[in-house]
Design a protein around this nucleic acid. Structure first.
Length: 714
DNA sequence: AACAGGGTTATTTTT
DNA sequence: TAACCCTGTT
């Protein structure tokens, strides 16, 4: 048999993995070492050489995008195609299992998946219902508690009580949350995993079914798995020792610890799985030697790692560039200048990326780029399906599919406004809570004058409620038999949303209309893909897909993103900005070794995105939360060997002298927007930054950075 | 229902 | 600083 297409072009380390005897194994794949390639070739090897049935292969990724890419590459490489392989995210795979066995999983077939935003609103409602202090119990705090427990496999009934008031109250919220979620047929992300895990580990027949089905489980980005996901893999693998897990990951790129990812799953892999073999991929195909040397040097300061040294045969004398600007504004100007130079020399802006630690940092960079007419795209931000107008349509759809979805009903019961104000709604909602039934059933009971439901709503209000119920039923009736895109546009019409967004002319409504059209298009695409032609499936897919978070690509433009968002990407030229103590690493993480190590890994991820040029910038004075901050240079920069750095400050210094000093001399009378009138008593300029001391009439004496102070000279 | 004003709070966000 | 949420007012 000709196997050359499976191994040609692979290096020795890669080939060893692709052709390995089946066993549990951990592949430590450094950045840019071709791990997706190895995974795809391994799957092809299993099918073509070891004659494993595609139906016995399960490939798990973390993003839908990665799953899509993998499917496409498998289809390309495997001669008989990849049909039958299960390939998807943890959540998508769990959903598939739960849909299949919804009865055994104790779910209705039409359960609704809620994303983090929905979950948050839902929790808010629970906190209100329980009449708890909103200052003490924030949705974020509660969400953390519930998700963390689910990640440890704990239900409200199995979490241990304690003497701690907060803990016990949180537990009460969790209890109520579970009851309401069951009542309303809502399943959150963590629940998808937990319920599947429970199903597989408690229902012997089903557990056995899957563990005898999946002989080979391949997991990508293993460093990002949490405890529950790891447990899930175990339950899929089953107890017999003839199923094999291949985990691919990089402990140095674990940057989601704060979301529950447990780097310990990689570090203790050999203890968590039997008879493991470990492989390493250390040859990097992306970056120059110098960039890798710098990145290796930084990450070598971490202790939670196996240790691995990336190398490359891409020789290039270019050093890591470093520039420390006087202020954040001048840091942005520096970036702009550098990009303009790059462009003038014939380079593409698409090849350049600007990274920052926090989203807030993008603002000043964007302003400066706009000012100089340099096009850019920002990654991240509001996801398409998170837009209010889209969520509104989705809420109608969800209620139509699942009438118990109180969450959805609350969102649209008065949208567009139909005379059901907050008073009426909370009256109905209180009754729902009192009788422990869904909002829909409560409303229905009221309109039917059910004797058990006592309400003080007057006849006209009840008629309005009736009208809403009729509307939903009517929409439901009229979309029967329609194609998905027709259903969607019909819902938008009949619900009154179309009219609502049409009646107003301002820009927000205009874009809302565009987005609704886009949503109908999405439905159309889904309809034609026949995979998700059904509205229920469409809704599931929406919940599990972020819907591209990056701006549309329409012209050559610089890419702006957080370092987190840069993971998995690569760019010819990378600018890492704001490399200051307090910002990167964040102050909160600087004094905790675990957190600091994660910051360092983040730095490593950022550096290893660069193919040919890496430029690191920071500034002396930065405006943060409306305050000036003077931060030292990031320790991560200090960790890069000096001989790998070319310091641009020596070159730029003379050109950047701040000319604002010229007019401000001792004795100048000034006016400050908040401190009022004063007189300059002292000046200082170290060549980077200029400051003035001003004696204010009412506020006393203060030192201010000239550039920020917005002083008016009198 | 819409809006103004005060108080609070500030990472990162694959599903 | 500025964005968000809540509250009280019109």
């Amino acid at each position: 048999m000709d196997i050359s297409h499976l191994v040609d072009g692979l290096n020795e380390q890669q080939r060893e993995i692709v052709c390995a005897e089946p066993s549990n194994c951990l592949v430590l794949a450094g950045a840019g070492s071709g791990k997706t390639r190895v995974l795809v070739h391994r799957i092809a090897w299993l099918i073509e050489v070891l004659e494993v049935s595609p139906h016995s292969v399960l490939a798990i990724t973390f993003t839908n995008k990665a799953a899509g890419e993998m499917k496409a590459r498998i289809a390309d490489l495997v001669k008989k195609g990849g049909g039958g392989i299960w390939c998807g995210t943890f959540h998508a795979i769990c959903l598939r299992i739960l849909k299949q066995h919804h009865t055994e999983a104790n779910l209705t077939p039409n359960f609704t998946i809620i994303d983090t935003g929905d979950q948050k609103r839902f929790i808010k409602r629970v906190i209100e219902q329980l009449n708890l202090d909103k200052k003490k119990f924030t949705p974020d705090g509660v969400i953390g508690f519930i998700n963390k427990n689910k990640e440890q496999g704990l239900r409200a009934a199995t979490v241990k009580g304690s003497h701690d008031y907060m803990h016990n109250q949180l537990l009460k919220i969790y209890e109520r949350y579970e009851i309401l979620a069951a009542q309303e047929n809502l399943v959150d992300f963590g629940e998808l995993l937990l319920r599947t895990h429970e199903l597989l580990s408690r229902n012997e027949a089903i557990g056995k079914h899957y563990s005898s089905k999946f002989k080979h489980i391949l997991v990508d980005e293993f460093q990002d798995t949490n405890g529950l996901q790891c447990a899930l893999i175990h339950s899929l693998q089953g107890k017999d020792n003839n199923n094999y897990v291949m985990a691919v990951g990089d402990e140095d790129q674990s940057i989601y610890g704060w979301r529950g990812a447990d780097i310990g799953n990689v570090l203790n892999f050999d203890k968590l799985f039997n008879d493991t073999k470990t492989f390493r991929l250390e040859k990097n195909y992306r970056s120059t030697e110098n960039i890798l040397k710098a990145a290796n040097a930084v990450i070598s300061n971490n202790s939670d790692r196996f240790g691995k040294e990336l190398w490359s045969d891409i020789k290039d004398n270019a050093l890591i560039e470093f520039y420390r600007a006087p202020t954040d504004r001048q840091e942005a100007s520096f970036l702009t200048d550098a990009l303009a130079d790059h462009y003038k020399q014939g380079g593409k802006l698409n090849d350049c990326a600007i990274f920052y630690r926090t989203n807030a940092q993008s603002r000043i960079i964007e302003e400066t780029l706009i000012h100089h007419g340099i096009p850019y795209r920002v990654y991240g931000g509001l996801r398409f399906y998170d837009r209010a107008e889209i969520k509104n349509v989705i809420a109608y759809m969800r209620l139509i599919v699942n009438r118990s979805n109180t969450e959805a009903m609350l969102r649209i019961i008065n949208l567009p406004t139909r005379g059901l104000g907050s008073t009426t709604i909370s009256k109905i909602n209180d009754l729902a809570q009192k009788h422990n039934i869904s909002l829909w059933d409560t409303a229905k009971a009221i309109t039917q004058g059910a004797p058990a439901i006592i309400t003080d709503l007057n006849k006209s209000k009840i008629a309005v409620v009736q009208k809403f119920l009729d509307l939903i039923d009517k929409i439901d009736d009229s979309i029967r038999g329609m194609g998905l895109q027709e259903q969607t546009s019909t819902i938008i019409k009949l619900s009154g949303l179309e009219q609502l967004y049409n009646k107003n002319k301002d820009a927000d409504y205009e874009s809302a209309r565009d987005n609704l059209q886009e949503f109908v298009n999405a439905a159309n695409i889904a309809f034609n893909s026949d995979e998700s032609s059904d509205m229920e499936i469409f809704l599931d897919n929406i919940a599990l897909e972020s819907g591209s978070t990056q701006a549309q690509e329409y012209e050559d433009s610089v890419q702006l993103m957080t370092i987190h968002a840069s993971k998995g990407l690569e760019f010819l030229k990378v600018f890492m900005t704001g490399m200051e103590e307090g910002l990167f690493p964040l102050e909160k993480s600087a004094y905790d070794d675990k957190l600091l190590q994660e910051e360092r890994r983040l730095c490593y991820v950022g550096m290893t995105r660069a193919c040919r040029h890496l430029c690191i910038t920071c500034c002396e004075a930065r405006l943060l939360y409306g305050r000036e901050n003077y931060n030292p240079i990031s320790r991560f920069i200090e960790e890069v060997p000096k001989e790998l750095i070319r310091n641009l400050n020596d070159k730029k210094r003379t050109t950047l002298l701040n000319n604002s000093m010229i007019k401000l001399k001792v004795g100048t009378r000034v006016n400050h927007p908040t401190f009022g009138y004063g007189e300059v008593t002292n000046t200082e300029d170290n060549g980077h930054i200029s400051r003035v001391q001003i004696d204010f009439e009412h506020e006393g004496s203060k030192w201010l950075v000239t550039e920020y102070a917005q002083l008016q000279i009198l």
